[in-house]
């Protein structure tokens, strides 16, 4: 990125100045690869993030220059400063930014030659398409149809592509005709920079995992609290329950029969006998023990 020593046209210099300013004013920037992303998705994101982030389509080389001027080593991003790049400048937590971007989806049509990321189903029913050349498209896609009142009906829900399949031109045109914009576009940063580089695959967090950790931590804390018989109502309930279970266990083991323990004690004895019977039955089927 040795840029110095070369004359930069004035309009480029202005852009660089603007980028430097954006970098200085924001704590965080992220890079998005917009190759193949429709412009309207970027527009939508720009609108949704308005006030929270600035989206700027940039030439990678100019961004590199700006980074250097802003005192950030462009080498950190070298491999990502290619192609069509949109830079996002923000003060948001980069993980929040990524999760927010992940929530905004644009639907569009699959193009011929694209790979699907999901199963595509042509739904049963009225297609609104008159019979004619399209009938053979249905035919080639092995979709059963019938014609009623001069309209093509799909006989039943039909899977026409599985995840990973390449979309044929027949399928692409059919989806267009049926108004099935099934391709979901969502953008994730390739990386974010917040003092350190955070790669894109780390940016979208597994919330279930965090919930799980919270649960585990809380349960562990409860275990300690119960063990200490911490005098808080929520904890004491568990402690009392534990004490009661232990008391009953002791009563059972001692065969201590009172009106309130009798049933539990007997039940335990029977359960144990059943267990033994089951075990004996394995060794001596001739006894015909029947534990049901």
């Amino acid at each position: 990125m040795a840029v110095t020593g070369r004359e930069i046209p004035r309009w480029k210099a202005e852009i660089v100045e603007e980028l430097v300013e954006l970098l200085r004013r924001h704590r965080v920037f992220a890079l998005i690869d917009t190759t193949g992303i429709p412009a309207n998705h970027i527009q939508m994101l720009r609108k949704k993030l308005h006030g929270k982030a600035v989206l700027k389509a940039v030439k990678p080389r100019l961004l590199g220059i700006a980074l250097e001027k802003a005192g950030i080593n462009p080498e950190l991003f070298k491999e990502h400063l290619t192609g069509q790049v949109v830079a996002v400048f923000t003060d948001m937590n980069p993980f929040e930014l990524a999760m927010l971007m992940d929530k905004y989806v644009t639907k569009t049509y699959f193009k011929p030659g694209e790979k699907t990321d999901k199963e595509i189903v042509i739904p049963e029913g009225n297609t609104g398409i008159p019979p004619g050349p399209m009938l053979s498209v249905f035919g080639r896609l092995k979709i059963q149809t019938k014609v009623q009142g001069n309209v093509i009906y799909v006989a039943k829900d039909t899977v026409v592509a599985k995840p990973g399949d390449v979309v044929s031109s027949d399928l692409a045109s059919l989806l267009q005709k049926l108004g099935l914009a099934l391709k979901e576009i969502r953008l994730r940063p390739k990386l974010a920079y917040d003092g350190v580089v955070i790669p894109g695959d780390k940016l979208v967090l597994n919330l279930e995992e965090y919930s799980g950790m919270l649960t585990t931590a809380h349960l562990d804390a409860l275990k300690i609290a119960v063990e200490l018989a911490l005098p808080e109502p929520g904890v004491l309930q568990l402690v009392l329950a534990k004490a009661q279970r232990q008391a009953l266990s002791l009563a059972i083991e001692a065969g201590f029969i009172t009106p309130e323990t009798a049933e539990a004690v007997l039940l335990a004895a029977v359960a144990k006998a059943n267990a033994l019977a089951a075990e004996v039955a394995k060794h001596a089927p001739e006894l015909g023990l029947e534990v049901k």
């Binding site: 275990k223 300690i224 119960v226 063990e227 200490l228 309930q237 568990l238 329950a241 534990k242 279970r245």
Partner: peptide, 19 residues
Amino acid sequence: AIKNIDIAKVLEQAIAAPV
């Protein structure tokens, strides 16, 4: 109180939940 318990062991146990 915490000094008197074996935290690792307590954490290993199932919680005596209210079921």
